[in-house]
Design a protein around this nucleic acid. Structure first.
Lengths: 202, 202
DNA sequence: CGGAGGTTTCAGAAATCTTTGAAAGCTTCG
DNA sequence: CGAAGCTTTCAAAGATTTCTGAAACCTCCG
């Protein structure tokens, strides 16, 4: 009982607890923005702000969610390594703690999720370019148009490769190789002129 | 008429057009990941791969969307500056072209959307910290606990300020100041030890 | 000024994503 | 070994977001 003053009506303790709540919400929004469900962020935040590990029940109370929702949410957080499970000797329940190294979390997500996406994109672009060339060779499509599309796809490829390098650098700790970014910025500029460039190469 | 071979059935031209379609879809997914509606990405991609400006109708055909959906989508793309409206002398219709400088687009989104988010977050964190201190001073909440929460909030603040700086640097072209990131990484490391620190004074 | 596109708006339909409650599955303690 | 308490799973309910078709609204041409 003394453990969770959560659902208690607003007493004098209110302002400080409001502070916590606000933080929880803002982290929720942040995570939502990052493409996670909002509750993942909220849940992590509650744990992050708690001095002691919490049980699924504590979380359900504070977040106003059902036990099953908590289970699901916590499960996902565990997968991302954003939360760890702990057990307390005499207690049958699971306790949870937040991973506190946010940096670690961010890089993990970047390397697993985003990098996968970028790679997938790159692959698709390569395939598309190949298909286009094939179609062009076979004379199935207008040559000029094919050249145009090809160039645009190449630009996308360049971008994606730079993105991949950026992410890679970021994740692997040697922080942001300035060169990599500059390069895009520049090439991007150059590429814009590709439109006029048109005839140069295929 | 000769202008839009869009709705024509699949003939020998298929493979090359499939290439385009694939690109369109992959860009769609990418954008979705970035927090935009998938159709925004798809629409932009269709325009990006088209040598000539297209009408709303062309877009509706190629994307299999209703006129209203196109209107909405294009409207949003216009707001982000991802697409531009063009008019052709004898034609009453609106034509659209894709903004080709992707770099410009990315930075615009980063500076408008993300930066706003980060700032909002930072502000909330400051407020929360203040409320917490107030509560603590008034003795409304357990001092040890307040100190703990305060530290965690401070860590979040640090992170958000670094994020803000990173975004700012990225957007403003002087590319990624290595120092900024390193700093977080380090402090993050230090902060993790806050847990141990905890027991000392709790 | 009247009419023929073309575009935008908007309320309802459709699709998608979330959350829930109930039941099944584990685990630990007696 | 059996019971009690937690946790997880899953189908259905609930929300939310997105898309559509119809109507209103422009704009330009004749």
């Amino acid at each position: 009982m003394s453990r969770s003053p959560s659902t208690s009506g607003s007493t004098d303790l209110a302002p400080a607890f409001d502070a916590e709540r606000e933080v929880v919400e803002v982290v929720g929004r942040l995570m939502e923005f990052w493409g996670f469900r909002r509750h993942l962020g909220r849940t992590w935040a509650v744990l992050y702000l708690s001095p002691e590990p919490l049980t699924a029940n504590d979380l359900a109370d504070r977040l106003q969610l059902s036990a099953s929702a908590i289970s699901l949410t916590v499960g996902e957080l565990l997968q991302w390594g954003a939360v760890k499970k702990t057990r307390v000797p005499g207690d049958r329940r699971d306790f949870f703690v937040a991973e506190t190294s946010i940096w670690k979390l961010v890089t993990r997500v970047l390397s697993q999720r985003e990098l996968a996406l970028v790679r997938d994109t790159a692959e698709t672009l390569v395939r598309a370019a190949a298909a286009l060339d094939a179609g062009r060779r076979a004379g199935q499509i207008d040559a000029a148009r094919a050249r145009f599309v090809r160039k645009r796809i190449d630009k996308l490829r360049l971008l994606s490769s730079v993105g991949e390098r950026l992410l890679g650098a970021f994740v692997s700790g040697r922080t942001l190789d300035v060169g990599a970014v500059r390069e895009v910025a520049d090439r991007d500029g150059i590429d814009v002129s590709v439109d006029g460039d048109e005839g140069a190469d295929a």
